[in-house]
């Protein structure tokens, strides 16, 4: 005779049956569900019976909960002591193994690559040759790199400026304190953020203010120079924008938000990045469209070496610089107090 299991309800077949019959799998869900349905169907059960069953049910639930809590506690305890050690050791071994194997595989690859600085390497081909030989003549930019990133391969650069823009938007989604809801709540949040901020920042530091008073104009001027000179010498939008952004951040650190908010708020950020990016996208769209359809774009290259030369490159550099400067400053203020 087969032995009857006393926990037949919990063996796999009835569980499968129950699972097919019902949506959930949690035993407790099912029990309450069944109980209520049963009481619906058989109203003849006496109130006493129902009460007794409910009490039983409650006791059972409590036991399950206690058991689960104990299990959880044990697992957690193990996780905090022995388990953590084990996992950490495992991770360390895994890390070293992986690091070594990745490096080994890649080093093998490097040993098979063309040798460093070789004359006949594949990268010394007609592409780079034309950039170097004809760059000046075709783009009008003395700085070959500027010609390359803003004229030859302008589409990539357009994408890159949008990488910066999208990152600024994403950081704004994450860190900006919300405008909505209770205004009192907002001001409290903001005050807290500013108070937190002040814990780590010296207030009205006289040395910093004096030095910044001298340095900031020079930094700004240098940034503008780099920006406007991008097509003539080393520099350009990305570097010039970074310098201007740094200048703004220094000014903010020395004189506080009260001073910068007079001329730079979130509205300024939005307007500037919109104007710069829209100009950039439209100008480049026009130039792409003309190029692809073999139309004359009507943009002259000017005399190489002049400040107003090399077609759109100067204006594009300015646009990129504005985006970069705004983004740098926005990152800084958003991280510091969640607003601009």
């Amino acid at each position: 005779m087969a032995k009857q299991r006393n926990d037949y309800e919990n063996s796999w077949f009835p569980r499968l049956q129950r699972w097919i019959a019902q949506g959930g799998t949690r035993l407790s869900d099912q029990m309450t569900e069944e109980l209520s349905e049963a009481s619906d169907a058989h109203r003849v059960l006496s109130a006493e019976d129902v009460a007794r069953r409910e009490v039983e049910q409650a006791v059972h639930q409590l036991e399950i909960q206690e058991h689960e809590a104990a299990l959880y506690e044990r697992a957690h305890q193990w996780g905090r002591t022995k388990g953590a050690k084990l996992i950490r050791a495992f991770y360390a071994v895994l890390a070293v193994l992986m690091c070594v194997s990745v490096i080994a595989v890649l080093l093998t690859t490097v040993s098979n690559l063309p040798s460093f600085g070789g004359e006949n390497n594949p990268i010394n081909n007609e592409v780079s040759q034309r950039y170097i030989e004809k760059g000046l003549q075709e783009t009008g930019a003395v700085n070959i790199v500027a010609g390359m990133i803003l004229d030859y391969r302008a589409f990539d650069t357009l994408g890159e400026s949008h990488v910066l823009f999208i990152a600024a938007c994403a950081v704004m989604i994450l860190l900006r304190l919300s405008d909505s809801g209770d205004p009192r709540q907002l001001s409290r949040e903001r005050m807290e953020a500013e108070a937190n901020d002040r814990l780590y920042e010296p207030k009205n530091d006289i040395i910093l203010q004096r030095v910044a008073g001298i340095l900031v104009p020079i930094i700004m001027l240098f940034g503008v120079y780099v920006l406007f000179n991008g097509h003539l010498g080393p520099g350009g939008g990305f570097s010039g924008g970074a310098v201007i952004g740094a200048g703004l951040i220094l000014y903010l650190n020395a004189y506080g938000f009260a001073a910068t908010e007079r001329f730079f708020t979130i509205k300024t950020f939005r307007a500037v990045s919109f104007i710069a990016l829209a100009f950039y996208a439209l100008a480049k769209s026009y130039s792409f469209f003309c190029g692809a359809n073999h139309l004359n774009s009507g943009i002259g290259l000017g005399t190489p070496g002049d400040i107003f030369s090399s077609g759109l490159i100067l204006y594009l550099n300015i646009a990129v610089g504005m985006v970069v400067a705004c983004t740098m400053y926005a990152f800084y203020t958003l991280f510091r107090k969640g607003d601009m």
């Binding site: 007609e126 592409v127 034309r130 950039y131 075709e138 004229d151 030859y152 391969r153 302008a154 589409f155 990539d156 130039s287 792409f288 003309c290 190029g291 692809a292 774009s297």
Partner: peptide
């Protein structure tokens, strides 16, 4: 293919 700009392919996009 569609040239993105005034320069043909291996040089331009």
């Amino acid at each position: 293919t569609f040239m993105m700009g005034h320069f043909p392919a291996p040089w331009g996009n």
